[in-house]
């Protein structure tokens, strides 16, 4: 319990809760739009933004936001070019992001490695008050948009052609969704690290999809799974002195394995019961 007396741990738990709510909402739509790796791509591109910011002496977070928004719009354009293989846009931009980041880092000689490392691995326990406030603003934005646009997003993710003929502005919605995902990645990345941001966004939604057959319940279960995973991971990280982002991700992996096994056993027992009757 002593950890709750530390200000940095209180902020870490506050941030964890906010991320636990935001992540499955975005994660579910990303999975259903076959863009699970988009979070990964945008986090790689964020690194390019940070490297550019450090090179030009501009606030890295601000530069990341600009770069990520441009990338988020480009993803949708490339996705339209290869409609049947939408993951191609992800692959192209992921390589481009990493390549630009590495080139910019090499141009910026003189001790930026520490900063880049900080963004690469992140650390939720070094989060400051301004970051928690920014995260809270993002939380309000994502939850608010989800509550208002839940129905159009449901139809859009089910089938884009159906959404278009139903009169929805499919292109605009896709771009806005990508931009919000990009902004979320840019805000979350310094906290959890570029390498793990994708796992934290995708895993709770992926676990929830296995546990529920209803769309609305998936989001709710995703938030519960997200909160359990974040809090457990953070506590374990504090107790064992392991990196927070990696510990949280491992907790999600364990939850994924347990739920998969339990679901399989339940299905088998249901099947046997049906066989007997």
């Amino acid at each position: 319990m002593e950890m709750f007396f530390y200000g940095f741990m209180q902020r870490a738990f506050q941030a964890s809760f906010l991320i636990a709510v935001i992540a499955p909402i975005l994660g579910l739509f990303l999975i259903l739009r076959r863009q699970s790796l988009m979070a990964d791509t945008l986090s790689h591109i964020s690194l390019a933004g940070i490297a550019l910011g450090l090179l030009l002496n501009v606030n890295p977070t601000l530069m990341t936001l600009v770069v990520v928004v441009i990338a988020a719009v480009s993803i949708d354009y490339i996705r339209m070019l290869y409609k049947s293989y939408s993951e191609i846009s992800i692959a192209i931009l992921m390589s481009a992001g990493m390549a630009i980041a590495l080139v910019l880092m090499s141009l910026n000689e003189g001790g930026t490695n520490t900063s880049i490392q900080q963004y690469l691995f992140g650390s939720i326990v070094t989060i400051n008050l301004a970051q928690v406030q920014l995260l809270f603003f993002l939380f309000l934005l994502v939850v608010g948009l989800f509550l208002v646009f839940r129905k159009p997003m449901y139809v859009l993710t089910f089938d884009e052609d159906t959404a278009y003929t139903a009169g929805l502005p499919v292109k605009l919605m896709s771009i806005v969704f990508n931009v919000i995902t990009g902004v979320t990645i840019a805000v979350i990345m310094p906290i959890v690290g570029a390498l793990l941001v994708s796992a934290i966004i995708i895993l709770p939604a992926a676990i929830a999809m296995r546990l529920s057959k209803s769309f609305n319940l998936v989001i709710l279960i995703g938030i519960i799974v997200g909160s359990v995973g974040m809090f457990t991971g953070l506590t374990a990280s504090y107790q064992f002195g392991t990196p927070p982002g990696a510990t949280i991700t491992l907790v999600f992996i364990v939850i994924f394995i347990i739920t998969t096994i339990v679901k399989k056993l339940v299905n088998q027992s249901k099947y046997k019961k049906n066989q007997r009757t």
């Binding site: 579910l28 259903l32 129905k151 159009p152 449901y154 139809v155 993710t157 089910f158 139903a166 929830a208 999809m209 529920s212 057959k213 209803s214 769309f215 609305n216 998936v218």
Partner: peptide, 14 residues
């Protein structure tokens, strides 16, 4: 796609 039949058919009314 994580949706029940009822949810999907209801979406036709949106």
């Amino acid at each position: 796609f994580p949706s029940t039949v009822l949810e999907l058919v209801r979406s036709g009314r949106y």
